[in-house]
Design a protein around this nucleic acid. Structure first.
Lengths: 352, 352
DNA sequence: GGGGAGCGTGAATGCGCTCTCTGCCATTTT
DNA sequence: AAAATGGCAGAGAGCGCATTCACGCTCCCC
């Protein structure tokens, strides 16, 4: 039951110093003489001692653990983000504790409670919507929280997204410039802010040019649902000649349906533009023209503002206390031109 | 600094009971009267109390945290496994703390040390090789360890893999039955047991039929390295007419090179068979004939033996103490027939 | 009606550590 | 030479909880 690992007391005994001295040796920036450091390190080495992070967390109140809430990983954007997040945090001495959740509100609540039980120093919530009580809960516990790839109105909630609105708008402009006549949209999950923003930008782009949407389906960010939506949409006599699919993951499934089941050519018969630029988007088998969400930049940004909040908390002035607004970062999202959509004259991959 | 969260003492005070009583209420299977439970629950609710997992871990010696070591996530097999692992563990009341590592020995060592510092209840090491000192280290600390998708000779090391040898062998038999004449191999990382086993099975399958390998390249399980290997391999006059690529991730990159750069047709000019059956393998754009590593089964197996070890440890009889051998599970790995390789007569997807 | 048996409870202990506080000594200042 | 300074070590107080122990209570059976 009891783990008989060596403790700082053992090391202290062997090194002939006090336990406090051992602690200080393993605390960066503590005041210890070189001689003590040497003695302690030697003894620690000998006994295979390593400080117990949990005990340290208990007393110091900082666990150096970041809770990551994530809903699904089949969309390749998330594994990529997870890897980069984890790497970035690890570099700064933090680690990621993973919590999977359904998108359902109740489940998220329960998961957050569980996370708080682990005394995490901060939370990153990727692609989940939080109830405002939940946000309050974290605020009360003083656990900084950053939304990743989702945004919410709550001014106290920090978030990092790409410029979804302008991304969607760019797609509209691009497709119109390409002289497409029947432009359709396959949406993701309509509860997601990313979906709403992308679509809003897209629709505004269309209507500003006096173009109306030819058709609309819902894919819920899932491959098979998107495939079904595509099948349904292409049953019509007037088939779309251009498609804005709300992310790459769905676009790939849609493309499979179009090319493989319906014998349509992309981009000759129908142009496809999507969103994310996951690794698979650049594979030649799909070669998707897509809006890039720069995972690195988004991750770095999220980590930065999270750690900043953590630091600030210790200094005692939180946004939410001072009434300052939490940052809502929006990362530039360029259109990457590839082969899945007709390219109008004058458009090119500037500087990408 | 100090987090002013409510503690069991606060709850006890409000409920008019002792702190021990509160603790017992939150300890499944402890002996408490219904009346006490009710009082305590009510008070806890009121104060928003939730037991501190870290403190609990400290005193009980069990953190309910599993350390997951993983080298990279760009191969889609790993995100999938990670998600399933995390879900399976979460269901059993555990959580995953992620540690990324380079494949280099030194880095792995350091990471494992760090993990041990977190007092994890167990470790799952995915696709990393461990030095035997490291394994000893975990043994000394009594932290159960399971290798995932890698195996090692050390009889005390539990591992879960697919039947790599027989998988490789099946590929050989399949390609020979398909009457391919110039069969080549693009290997993964040669330090990986999976690579060695797959290739050993493959080579044995070839030589048993009196066939010699036409060419061999090394892709290190990385897309661009594999692409380079393919380019190199197809410079020759006598180009391969069949390719066993050591995993899907590389196979996709290779296929891009063959079709897009070299204008070769798959499977007409060259058949490709790979390994893993990641989600992308079944996308119509690639439609890979591949050996399936059933992620679910592998994950469940890994979780089972890990938790079993954890339970056994508490009971006091470890494999490594009793000299019993740790299990080395090998999951059946069927060949999934799709479109990237010529299908010989008489072969079909039996029961898949 | 006395002695177990059995359950529920509270006081107390300590998990391994950080951090404050005090005291010592060596060095500097006046 | 006396006083002030600063650097460093050790003692001690917890962090929030699970767990042991001993005690009181009820119930039951001879």
């Amino acid at each position: 039951m009891a783990r008989e690992s060596t403790t700082s007391v053992d090391v202290a005994k062997l090194a002939g110093v006090s336990q406090s001295a051992v602690s200080r040796v393993f605390t960066p920036g503590a005041s210890v003489s070189d001689r003590t450091v040497e003695k302690v390190r030697k003894a620690a080495q000998e006994l295979g001692y390593r400080p117990n992070s949990l005990a340290r967390a208990m007393v110091s109140g900082r666990s150096r653990i970041i809770g990551l809430v994530v809903a699904y990983l089949n969309n390749q954007f998330y594994p990529e983000a997870l890897e980069k997040l984890s790497a970035a945090l690890q570099e700064r001495g933090y680690h990621v504790l993973v919590f999977l959740t359904e998108k359902t509100q109740g489940d998220v609540n329960q998961v957050i409670e569980e996370i708080l039980g682990y005394q995490v120093d901060g939370i990153i919530a990727a692609s989940v919507a939080l109830s405002s009580e939940l946000a309050d809960r974290c605020r009360a516990e003083k656990v900084p929280l950053v939304l990743f790839n989702r945004s919410q109105d709550d001014p106290g909630l920090a978030s990092v997204t790409s410029k979804n609105y302008s991304g969607g708008r760019t797609v509209a402009e691009f497709l119109i410039a390409g002289e497409h006549k029947r432009i359709a949209h396959i949406a993701g999950w309509e509860g997601a802010s990313t979906q709403r923003d992308r679509e809003a930008g897209f629709m505004d782009g269309l209507s500003e040019a006096g173009v109306t949407l030819h058709a609309r389906g819902v894919g819920n960010f899932q491959a098979d649902t998107a495939a079904d939506a595509a099948r349904e949409m292409f049953k019509a006599d007037e088939k779309p000649d251009a498609l804005f699919v709300a992310n790459d993951h769905m676009a790939i499934a849609v493309m499979d349906v179009l090319r493989d089941e319906l014998q349509l050519k992309v981009p000759e018969d129908v142009s496809i533009v999507s969103y994310d630029d996951v690794p698979a988007a650049s594979w030649k088998g799909y070669n998707l023209t897509t809006i890039r969400q720069p995972a690195d930049l988004m991750v770095n940004s999220a980590v930065d503002i999270l750690l900043e909040q953590i630091a600030d908390k210790n200094a005692g002035h939180l946004w939410n206390r001072t009434g300052m607004k939490a940052p809502k970062i929006e990362i530039e999202a360029p259109l990457i031109l590839r082969g899945s959509a007709r390219i109008p004259e004058g458009w090119d991959n500037e500087g990408v």
